[in-house]
């Protein structure tokens, strides 16, 4: 019987057969397997690509601050050279904070997740796009993710799939959006 090498499988990941130590085997619909294997390949390529790391590092320098401690947690913070917290800004209330969730900091540092910046106007565009095309009012927070999808999709093959997590509903945001678009609601 094999023994788990590392208890923290999130950090080490499963082996090439999908095993976390002695536990595992893939429990995935057969039709999704090619996509998952593609995703894995892209992930490993990006991790090994110096150009990717350079881009990520540049974005981190300009957009995600550096580790600091605020409100009882250590996380990436917008701050000046002396550790004074900078004013964050976002059109969405849920993102208008000078820091990010500590787990995101960790995912970023371990290289599991790539974070990209999205501007207010891009999020507003994406918000309207989803309303028009799908009749779904997204929250302003995931509208940022949607804006990134809009940027990436045209560069991808027709058979490639993007999964986007639309984590909120925009009925709470219609007044904010209305104000920005010049409507009095």
């Amino acid at each position: 019987m094999t023994k788990p090498v590392e208890p923290n499988s999130f950090r080490t990941g499963p082996d090439e057969n999908g095993y976390f130590g002695l536990f595992g085997g893939r429990y995935v619909a057969e039709t999704l397997m090619p996509l998952i294997l593609d995703l894995e390949r892209a992930y490993h390529e990006a991790r090994a690509d110096p150009a990717f790391h350079a881009e990520l590092s540049a974005l981190n320098t300009h957009y995600t601050g550096r580790p600091g401690v605020l409100h009882g947690n250590r996380t990436y913070l917008l701050q000046d050279d002396d550790g004074q917290i900078k004013e964050g800004h976002s059109i969405s209330a849920g993102l208008d904070y000078p820091g990010i969730g500590p787990e995101h900091s960790w995912l970023r540092d371990t290289g599991r997740v790539e974070y990209v910046p999205i501007m207010d106007d891009e999020a507003l565009e994406a918000f309207q796009l989803l309303c028009r095309l799908e009749g779904i009012i997204p929250a302003l927070e995931p509208s940022h993710a949607l804006a990134e999808v809009v940027k990436r999709a045209p560069k991808m093959g027709k058979d490639q799939i993007i999964v986007m997590n639309l984590c909120g509903r925009g009925d709470k945001d219609v007044f904010t959006v209305g104000r920005h678009l010049g409507y009095e609601l």
Partner: peptide, 8 residues
């Protein structure tokens, strides 16, 4: 507060 110390 801690952050200016941590930053230093």
């Amino acid at each position: 507060y801690y952050n200016p110390i941590y930053s230093y």
